[in-house]
Design a protein around this nucleic acid. Structure first.
Lengths: 206, 206
DNA sequence: TTCAAAAATGTACCCGGTATGGTTTATGCT
DNA sequence: AGCATAAACCATACCGGGTACATTTTTGAA
């Protein structure tokens, strides 16, 4: 019963294989020039099976890029929401030096950056996070008007901008360490700006 | 030579007919439940011809919803960019009372609001405007760093939020006049917030 | 009237994604 | 061990959006 069976391991393995093959092919020949049929065939699996693991072509690349800003706010403890977010992104530039697959991450970013469809995809995920963030903020601040939505939109916009700059640097050859350092500085700037702006909102609403 | 020919008039007319038929069908049966083939047939035209007028299915609905924030900034005269934008949106709530086709506008908004694909589409157009706006701001403020992109992102986020609230009210039955009034108030609030925030940026960068 | 450009068309095709129905394969139970 | 079951997998056919191409109709102008 549920002994972490061989079945589940094989599934996980197949899933990883598909994603890896896809990333490799996309990196070699470009996202749009590779069909899902080719990916499936190269991974030794049927198209239907591929779509059983990944709901769409872009999820082959975008899965695992999800951010969870709403969760950060929800689990912020006793800190104010903005501070929790700032501290989270402050770490983002440093942490990935560990055992992470830097090579794969870089080709992933390159693939994303060179495909309009994928860029649109990541923006879409940001936008869906925005709604959740708005709800989390509304609850955290006990405000139900336009203010939390406005704040969520501005936070999301700032984070998106930071991430785009970061990705763009990585995609154009800036070494990871330097990109991380620059990102750190920009995070502080962006959150200073947000905090400053919201200080006015707080005065106006409550 | 170029006498505003009958040719061009017929083209315009065909284009309008296609768009109107599409909007009607989408309004009756939902965006996803109507195929482009049906639209083409109902408009008395071939599918290929339809795609010669409109580059995609969603453009059947979304064409003409384009905002041109970058153009507003570029043509701002001697006013600062934010003021030009504020004045533009200040008018948006009032102007459409004129000869505009209110009925068509409402069904258009209803169709958009009830289709995830179309909602994603309008967000995409906002995002592409963001890039242009960033360029316009960079030129207007003589700043090439992160600041103009951050400002553009925040402005776009605010405008998107305002428009969403406006659309949502219209789609849920709030009368146009009241929605316009509320929008007007919110425009002032949002731009106050933006101006307040940017005042800090100006101090920091120059 | 004639002629060349523009517009419209029919057809066939590509690709992402889904539905269906059947076949293998791991698993839990006896 | 052996067996039933459910999960994973697959082949195939299909759908809808979108494009390429070659052909035909329309239209403005000489």
């Amino acid at each position: 019963m549920m002994m972490a069976g061989l079945r589940e391991r094989k599934k996980e393995q197949t899933r990883r294989r598909i994603a890896e093959v896809a990333l490799r092919l996309f990196g070699e020949r470009g996202y749009d020039a590779v069909t899902v049929n080719e990916v499936a065939e190269a991974a030794g699996v049927a198209k239907v099976t591929l779509f059983a693991y990944f709901p769409s072509k872009d999820s082959l690349v975008l899965d695992g890029v999800k951010e969870d800003t709403a969760a950060i706010v929800a689990g912020r403890g006793d800190r104010p929401p903005l501070q929790a977010l700032r501290e989270h992104y402050r770490l983002m530039g440093r942490q990935d030096q560990g055992e992470m697959d830097v090579e794969g991450l870089l080709t992933r970013i390159r693939v994303i950056s060179s495909s309009p469809a994928l860029l649109a995809g990541v923006q879409q995920t940001h936008m869906s996070q925005r709604e959740e963030l708005a709800c989390a903020l509304a609850e955290a601040l006990q405000e139900r008007g336009l203010a939390p939505r406005l704040m969520a939109a501005q936070i999301t916009a700032a984070v998106t901008t930071l991430q785009e700059a970061f990705f763009h640097r990585l995609a154009t050859g800036v070494p990871l360490e330097e990109a991380g350092r620059l990102l750190g500085d920009e995070v502080e700037l962006a959150f200073d700006l947000l905090e400053y702006g919201f200080s006015m909102l707080k005065g106006e609403i409550s």
